[in-house]
């Protein structure tokens, strides 16, 4: 109360401390950027590099991100680190659905991004068939530097608010469209053509 009274009486002269003004939205976005908590979703080789990023040498805690949450309900960011198999795909989607909004996804490595060198029956050809992806990190596996770069890119996108806008436009991400590509029935499933 005292603050408002002081301003009422003396104008800005009445303030005792420095302060910053801004939109609530930018303040919230700033806060979100600095406290992204990743869900542990290590799958394959990339998970080792993700752990390396969290360890002392690359030290993700500099960006408020060292707290890998085992429960998806406490996490904001899912780093899909590694190849996603047909058997894992429903699990991945369930973990994503359990995360609270706002949530973001980094697809780490070529296997998660596009299937990579494993273009076969077992691997989902890109995790974006299952969940909406915000940033793709290339590499097999991406080094910790690449992952950090992906995280910075995500920070920028969170800061501009671009991501949340997009999500409200299209109603919140891709549906689960995994079908068995077994080759038993000869025609191959072509993505986007069904």
């Amino acid at each position: 109360m005292g603050l408002i009274e002081n301003v009422k009486d003396d104008g800005f002269e009445g303030l005792e401390h420095n302060f910053v003004t801004g939109q609530v939205e930018s303040l919230v976005q700033w806060a979100r950027t600095r406290s992204l908590w990743p869900a542990t979703f290590g799958l394959a080789c990339c998970a080792i590099e993700m752990m390396a990023t969290g360890a002392a040498h690359y030290d993700m805690s500099r960006y408020g991100m060292e707290v890998f949450r085992a429960s998806p309900r406490q996490a904001d960011l899912m780093i899909v680190a590694g190849r996603v198999s047909q058997k894992m795909a429903p699990v991945l989607r369930q973990v994503y659905d359990q995360m609270m909004e706002p949530k973001w996804v980094i697809s780490m490595g070529v296997c998660a991004s596009s299937g990579g060198m494993f273009n076969n029956y077992a691997i989902v050809q890109g995790v974006d068939e299952i969940v909406p992806v915000d940033v793709y990190a290339p590499g097999c596996p991406p080094g910790p530097e690449t992952l950090l770069h992906a995280i910075f890119t995500l920070h920028d996108k969170i800061n501009t608010g671009e991501l949340l806008q997009r999500r409200s436009d299209n109603g919140g991400g891709a549906g689960l469209t995994i079908e068995q590509r077994d080759g038993q029935s000869a025609p191959l499933l072509i993505r986007g053509a069904q």
Binding site: S114, N119, Y121, Q180, D182, G183, L188, I190, R191
Partner: peptide
């Protein structure tokens, strides 16, 4: 799952890159 992947008459399941 239907089929047994390592049989030779089971296609590798490659999809063209788009």
């Amino acid at each position: 799952w239907v089929g047994h992947p390592l049989r030779k008459d089971y296609a590798v399941g490659r999809i063209p890159v788009q």
